[in-house]
Design a protein around this nucleic acid. Structure first.
Lengths: 200, 200
DNA sequence: GAATTAAGCGAACGGTCGTGCTATTTTGGC
DNA sequence: GCCAAAATAGCACGACCGTTCGCTTAATTC
């Protein structure tokens, strides 16, 4: 890997962490350069615009997300254990990836939800991919017999992500010490009400 | 009401709408002044700092929230109907209050979740109040016999807000046309699994 | 209607923003 | 060890940021 690619990677590492705190808009080339002891123009040269930096930062964040959440969860057995692992790893992924500002995507979602453009497009694609991951895991749980055969897996993924979003909100903004417990309970009852043979 | 208070109110009206799009940090005195055909300094004089403007904007948003969500829902009968009304009005409150950028508080939550200071403090207070409203409505549903007597009402409020957050995410960021339907279904099953006499 | 206060304007301040240039240094292949 | 190429620095730019000041105009009070 060439020198340029190395520093580029270092930049993105820090950019992901910084953006999790201040958002992709709050992400600033000057601030980034100061932190990394580069000149503004030197750093700028790696990307050709701020928008490109934002896009690369999102992509880098997605890679870290896969490493911290998706891949580890794949080690858990298909079905219920894997779904639980996805929830667990999701709750821990910001701190585990040293994102002291919480989940990068939750942050970005609020910023870009009504700001059309390439950044939003990428973000939407990533979030849909994530919902697909959840839906596929739910589908596997169905075929394992852990969830009801007639389950709407997209609906399940939707509700499961809702539990995660609320965890993020409660733990980060409200500082609720019961946040994790609450979300686990929410997931439990979500799961329990969809078990096979459940009266619905 | 004096002249000053009138324009001050107009400023806050627009500030709430603008902040819902660009956030409380993206909210800019210059932009605000341009839109309202005021001078920057003239507008600035109404508040003495940007932080004060942010605080007043949050407060103004809270008033509009109460008018658009809480008060209308109180017209519905206690118990299940009122809970459903809270969900319905919450989903519609951004557009109903012409917040084209979605819920001001969801936006602000992402911005300030790790930015200590008076703005975050106020936001946290408002969000806790909102969860209390939900919990109290759930408590009423218990005493009406619509929900199980041993229900953990705070837990219920937590899960219900999660459904709302996911609605916001799905409808605004992802543009999912099924968002409302999904959230209604999520609420239904949340509610159904807590009915009195439900096996848990 | 005069006196007093409030409201708003315009210009300016020091900063930081993203983004261009042009040099200079560093790197890597020969 | 040379030389082209890549990486980085330095500097400047226009724009906008929050904030301050002194001034004018408008509203309120007596």
């Amino acid at each position: 890997m060439s020198k340029g690619q190395i520093t580029r990677q270092q930049i993105l590492d820090h950019a992901v962490a910084l953006a999790s705190k201040v958002g992709l808009s709050g992400l600033t080339i000057g601030r980034l350069a100061d932190d990394l002891k580069l000149s503004k123009s030197g750093l700028f040269g790696h990307f050709q615009s701020k928008e490109a930096l934002q896009l690369k930062t999102l992509e880098a964040g997605a890679e870290r997300f896969i490493d911290a959440v998706v891949r580890p969860a794949l080690k858990a057995p298909r079905g219920e254990p894997r779904l639980r692992a996805l929830l667990d790893h999701w709750c821990r992924w910001p701190e585990q990836s040293s994102l002291h500002g919480g989940c990068l995507f939750v942050q970005a979602a609020a910023e870009f939800d009504d700001l059309a453009g390439p950044v939003k497009d990428l973000l939407v694609r990533l979030q849909k991919d994530w919902l697909d991951v959840l839906a596929n895991a739910a589908r596997a749980a169905v075929s394992e017999g852990h969830l009801a055969a007639d389950l709407d897996v997209e609906q399940f993924a939707h509700e499961m992500y809702g539990v995660m979003l609320m965890y993020h909100h409660a733990s980060r903004l409200l500082g609720d010490p019961m946040a994790e417990q609450r979300s686990k309970a929410a997931f439990d009852s979500l799961f329990d009400s969809r078990r096979p043979g459940q009266s619905r």
